[in-house]
């Protein structure tokens, strides 16, 4: 769902990794693939946004780069799969990350399951696992900030054998213990989930149930989630 185009004109490899190929330009950063110390590497470069005031841009870029790395490390320490951070270049605002290969996004997985005519009930096990991982992440006070089914990867999934779930794109993440922030995190996921995947209300409920069962702090978060749902504008009437 995030705005991504193919290569935008004129982007060259970041100076810190010559020879890297531009994969895509997202809303937040340019993403390159290259080799770093012999390893397949993804480089995420936060380039200056010319539309923003330079002071604001600099501040946001520095803060988001630091928070992204901090959140990934905290997740990995807690045993949540996320790409390894190889290197951070704070002068060019580049993060060097492990390339996750042989993976598909949860979005693709759900879409192809639905397209093949299989019942969404076959995805309940997956929903349970997503709920557990997010519960663990929130218990570590990591707020992802951009939870979508495109930002979760499934590695090595085969028939009958569940693959490994990897969280990616911590670009808007930060550390917070507030139930409010975690509630909004779940709200963002709920909206993205239900708008990307039609007729998956039951599947998302399953995910939430598993989240509630797995997190000690879930009641406060769910209370906030219920509040946030009512908070926005023009909620109740459907036109």
């Amino acid at each position: 769902m995030a705005g991504m185009d193919g290569g935008s004109g004129g982007a060259v490899a970041p100076p810190s990794l010559p020879g890297a190929q531009l994969l895509k330009q997202g809303a937040e950063a340019r993403v390159y693939r290259g080799r770093f110390l012999g390893k397949s590497t993804i480089v995420k470069e936060r380039f200056p946004k010319r539309y923003r005031h330079p002071v604001l841009d600099e501040k946001l870029t520095k803060r988001r780069t630091a928070q992204e790395v901090r959140s990934i490390l905290r997740c990995r320490k807690a045993g949540i799969s996320a790409p390894v951070v190889y290197f951070v270049d704070y002068t060019t605002n580049c993060i060097f990350l492990e390339e996750i290969t042989d993976s598909i996004t949860i979005r693709e997985h759900i879409t192809s399951t639905q397209a093949s005519g299989r019942s969404t009930e076959t995805l309940y096990g997956l929903a349970d696992r997503i709920g557990q991982i997010l519960a663990k992440m929130h218990d570590e006070d990591v707020v992802h900030g951009d939870l979508t089914t495109s930002n979760m990867l499934l590695v090595g999934e085969e028939d009958g054998k569940p693959g490994k779930l990897v969280l990616i794109d911590f670009g808007l993440s930060y550390i917070s213990a507030l139930p409010e922030d975690k509630g909004v995190d779940m709200y963002v996921l709920e909206k993205a989930f239900l708008s990307t995947h039609p007729n998956t209300e039951a599947l998302f409920q399953r995910l939430l149930k598993s989240y509630i069962a797995a997190s000690k702090k879930a009641p406060a978060v769910i209370k906030k989630l219920d509040e946030v749902r009512l908070r926005g504008r023009k909620r109740s009437m459907v036109g």
């Binding site: 769902m1 995030a2 005031h53 946001l60 951009d146 979508t148 808007l172 909004v184 909206k191």
Partner: peptide, 15 residues
């Protein structure tokens, strides 16, 4: 003068 204010983007939503 640019005065620093909170900046709140949540996924594709704002506050």
């Amino acid at each position: 003068q640019y005065v620093e204010l909170p900046y709140t983007v949540k996924g594709m939503d704002v506050s």
